[in-house]
Amino acid sequence: MSMLHTVNKSPFENSTVLSCISLCSKNSSILFIEDAVISVMKSTKFTDVINNSLKDFKIYALKPDLEARGLSLDNVIEGVKVVGYEEFVDLTTEHDSVQSWL
C-alpha cells in the first residue's frame, strides 16, 4: 500500500514535519502545503532533513503556497517536485490512502 502524507505546519513552529517523516514508510509520498512549504527551502536548518528524506520518499510542495509566501521556486531543494492543486488531486487518487497530519 502506498500512502500520501500531507503536512501543513512550518518545521520552525512544531514537530509535525519531523513526526511525519519518522512515521512514513518507504514508497510513501509527502506533500507540503500551507505553512509547511517552508520545509523545502534551501539553506534552512531543515534542509539536511529534507535532503535525507528524499532518499526514501517522494517529496512535493504546493506551488501556490510557495508563491503566496514569496518563496522563490529557484530556492526549492533539488528533488522536491513543485505541484499545483490539480496535481494535489492526482496525488490523492494515485496513492491508496491519505493521511493529513494536523
Partner: peptide, 26 residues
C-alpha cells in the same frame, strides 16, 4: 474540514482542492 474560515487556511485549501477535483472529473 476541521477548521473555521479566515483564522486558518484549511478551508481555503479545501475549496481549491475541491474545485480542482471537480475540474478533473472526480
Amino acid at each position: 474540514i476541521n477548521e473555521g474560515p479566515y483564522q486558518h487556511q484549511a478551508s481555503d485549501t479545501a475549496l481549491q482542492y475541491v474545485k480542482a477535483a471537480i475540474k478533473k472529473g472526480h
